[in-house]
Design a protein around this nucleic acid. Structure first.
Lengths: 142, 142
DNA sequence: ATCAGATTTGTAATAAGTACAATTTTAAAA
DNA sequence: TTTTAAAATTGTACTTATTACAAATCTGAT
């Protein structure tokens, strides 16, 4: 991935590009598997040995706040992050725990900008259940 | 609220009604403000002095697993619970933190039961933004 | 009354995330 | 180039929601 694309994404959202911010944004734009802060830290730490976990947490919060990435709270255990910011849903398998992207045909029809005087800045649609691989395994539990 | 209605809700979902389970279910059916486990514990502890926090956590997990209530993960800090299980969305104000119920016209149109071999058991639609009261307060921050 | 299984309890542990003060980096002014 | 202030990063210590687990209690059938 070209560094200029990553820097553009940061600057388009009013974020000054630093070494750490670029690395975190680059990781997210190269890995659409909804990583947690911890996963990102462990992947980047060998590359940037001075990296601090606090920086990863702070940066992810900043990126999400500025709208450069989105926060996924489908997992009650930890927050996940996603550089794909176009409207789509997420599915989490109750058996293997994996989170999948899910296209939704009519999502824009339910995602309003303002309802009854409430200002909506962000919308997330989450599905839970059993993925293709785990469907049979899970049914054998009962 | 009549106790028989609460016991019915439990039994309809295959849950044996105990004193603690009834109390927790009753609290949720009487308070649709999406309480956390901690809130529920603190409200019930004076009434049931032997109540343990572990029981509250375990019971809420059980009720959610059996489909008697639903788990709301709109707050990245803690899990909230809701006895209203008909399809509706939730809105969380980024300023005051309150979680509101939100009717959604076309929600059923996007909430499929099965997509591409994935079995969907549960769907949640979350909105974030600023509520009516906080909209002006929040805009003064910038 | 007894007994096994289910439920509850209390304590200790885990782990995600945050507060905060110290250090380092950046970039502009002198 | 040196100075300097603001911004960004770091490391440590802390907080807090949630879970693990073993002991105690309750329940309902025999």
């Amino acid at each position: 991935m070209k560094t200029s694309i990553i820097i553009d994404r940061l600057q388009d959202h009013g974020i000054k590009p630093s070494l750490q911010r670029i690395a975190i944004m680059e990781y997210l734009m190269g890995h659409y598997n909804h990583p947690t802060a911890d996963v990102i830290f462990n992947k980047l730490y060998p590359v940037i040995p001075t990296l601090s976990k606090t920086t990863v947490y702070n940066t992810l919060k900043l990126l999400a706040y500025k709208g450069a990435i989105s926060e996924i709270t489908i997992d009650e255990k930890n927050v996940r992050y996603d550089a794909e910011i176009s409207p789509h849903a997420h599915f989490r398998c109750k058996y293997c725990g994996n989170v999948f992207d899910f296209p939704v045909k009519n999502l824009s029809s339910v995602v309003a900008k303002e309802i009854d005087g409430f200002l909506i800045t962000d919308a997330q649609l989450y599905y839970k259940g059993y993925c293709k691989k785990c469907k049979t395994k899970a049914s054998q539990l009962y």
